[in-house]
Simulated scan of single mutants.
Amino acid sequence: MTSMLSPRLDHRLVTQRLTLEPVSVEFTYQLLEYQLDNRLHLQPWEPARRGDFFTLDTLTARARAMADSMAAGNALHWLLLEGDTVVGECNFTNIVRGPFLACHLGYSIDHRRQGKGLMREALTVSIDYVFERIGLHRIMASYRPENARSARLLHSLGFEREGYARAYLKINGAWADHVLTALINPAV
């Protein structure tokens, strides 16, 4: 078991239908296409995005920052690929070591691919990686109460409800309540 991320670790994961590729500037064009194509679909669930967020320069800088965060051992950022097309993202951020050994999970999927089990497939393999290769003890995920898809997905993966946080995150320009969940590594 590895307790720290390292640029030498192979973070690429493969499932039956997807490749989870670590974010890098190599995929900036595909990431931009994904963001533009899903702008309205993701808007209710994400922070308000300025217009320049949806530019090649901004997404190149974002990809660099994500790659740097991975190299520093603070996060894992994956793009979900079908062939060369980005169809989603999953991110394990705010990795804390020491007695906590925890992180936060965030994810999104292309509007045309909802309900096909792709996110469940991606999260199953990435959660196993985070628990088995990185050695974390806890993965925390939150969702807005009206997001029934996320509620079902997290429940199906074994996440347990731990609480309800009022005005937890500023989403789409307004403070939004969230349901707090966590998944505990049974081996740690």
Rank of each mutant, 00 (worst) to 15 (best):
T28E: 08
P22T: 00
R64I: 15
T60G: 03
L56Y: 10
D37F: 01
E21K: 09
N74P: 00
D68T: 12
Q43G: 06
L20R: 07
M66Y: 15
D37G: 10
L76F: 11
E21H: 11
M70R: 10
E46Q: 13
L59F: 06
L18E: 11
A75G: 09
L76N: 05
R64K: 04
T85Y: 01
T15I: 13
A48L: 14
L36V: 01
L36M: 06
S69Y: 05
L56N: 08
D57N: 14
H41K: 01
A63Q: 02
D52R: 14
A72E: 04
Y34D: 00
R62L: 15
L31P: 00
N38H: 05
D10Y: 01
R49L: 05
L32I: 05
L32G: 09
R64M: 12
S69R: 13
S24I: 11
R50Y: 01
G73A: 01
G73Y: 00
L80C: 08
D84A: 03
A65H: 12
E33K: 14
E82G: 12
T28D: 05
F54Y: 15
A75V: 01
A72T: 09
A65L: 06
L81I: 01
L59Q: 11
F54T: 07
H41Y: 05
V86C: 04
P22W: 06
V14L: 05
Y29L: 12
V25I: 07
L32Q: 09
E21R: 14
Y34P: 00
R12Y: 13
L20K: 07
T28N: 09
L56E: 12
T19S: 08
R49Q: 13
H11K: 10
M70W: 05
T28A: 08
Y34F: 15
